[in-house]
């Protein structure tokens, strides 16, 4: 009985999310198309032939380690940053918006607040996976249109100079897809929980600041590093940023955010937004 209630609640959340955020999803698709066109144009211009991994690298690659000095210039990797902050914008406003704009009608129809929060987190995860799925599909279609392969010829991502030959499919899938999704999920859950207490705008800002700090500091504490392919241990050689460590840290962050959020949400008064 409880499971059926949970499933109904999750389905409600997914439907409500899409109904409320249709325009945001359309814009997300437009951003993916823009990234796809820009990526393949750049690859074909510089490398002559395209492949899926090189295309994904253009967005997911991020930036190499930043070495601070008085002569250095700190710049954010624009497309990696755009990809992630739009995702945070897409998911971050939903729970607080649904809670306050609906006057708690959905909340009182759940059995417990815990169920409500779990359902919100699950629906956010579903949306993150769909966002990545949409992006991958767009890149796949772009690659097909350009007549590219999946693995680069010669096993080297030319524009980045990274060797992928010899890597298993599992390793490549983990590095290119699974780990970035884990990072986005952990940060998404954290943002969602924060948004209930500090507001959606501040939680969005905090996430942006965290991602910026991840680019600045190549440390395992800043899990944004794991979503940048340049910084993963198999590319950078930094053993502190191993794939396993990344997945564990993402799990810890998501679990901790959820647990703390649950404790605080149980005691929270749902009053109209001032």
């Amino acid at each position: 009985m409880k499971y059926r209630n949970m499933i109904r609640l999750i389905l409600y959340d997914i439907r409500y999310f899409f109904r409320q955020n249709r325009w945001k999803w359309l814009f997300a698709f437009m951003i993916h198309v823009f990234l796809c066109i820009r990526t393949f144009h750049s690859i074909l211009f510089y490398a002559g032939s395209s492949d899926l991994l090189s295309a994904l690298w253009q967005t997911m690659g991020g930036a190499r380690e930043y070495l601070l000095s008085s002569d250095s210039s700190f710049q954010l990797p624009a497309y990696w940053f755009l990809f992630h902050i739009y995702l945070f914008f897409l998911i971050g406003f939903y729970p607080a918006g649904e809670l306050y704009s609906g006057n708690g009608q959905a909340l009182v129809r759940t059995r417990t607040r815990a169920m409500w929060l779990i359902s919100k987190c699950i629906s956010v995860v579903v949306n993150i996976v769909l966002y990545y799925g949409c992006f991958l599909l767009t890149m796949l279609i772009g690659n097909l249109v350009c007549g590219g392969t999946v693995i680069p010829r010669g096993g080297i991502i030319g524009l980045a100079g990274i060797r992928v030959a010899g890597k298993s499919v599992t390793e490549l899938l983990t590095a290119f897809i699974f780990l970035p999704v884990c990072v986005s999920t952990a940060l998404g859950v954290m943002q969602v929980v924060l948004s209930l207490f500090v507001g959606p705008v501040l939680s969005f800002m905090l996430n942006i600041a965290y991602m910026t700090a991840s680019v600045f500091w190549m440390k395992p504490f800043f899990i944004g590093n794991y979503s940048m392919l340049y910084r993963q241990s198999w590319v950078s050689g930094n053993t502190n940023l191993s794939v396993t460590g990344g997945i564990l840290r993402c799990l810890v962050l998501a679990s901790l955010s959820f647990a703390v959020g649950m404790l605080l949400f149980q005691k929270k008064d749902i009053l109209p937004e001032s």
Binding site: L68, S69, S70, D71, F74, L76, V201, I208
Partner: peptide, 21 residues
């Protein structure tokens, strides 16, 4: 006066949101 620090990047990145708050 510099562009190597995290703080200057954060400021010039987030100030549009902060101004509108």
């Amino acid at each position: 006066g510099e562009y190597y620090s995290l703080q200057s990047t954060l400021f010039y990145l987030l100030v549009p949101i902060v101004c509108a708050l």
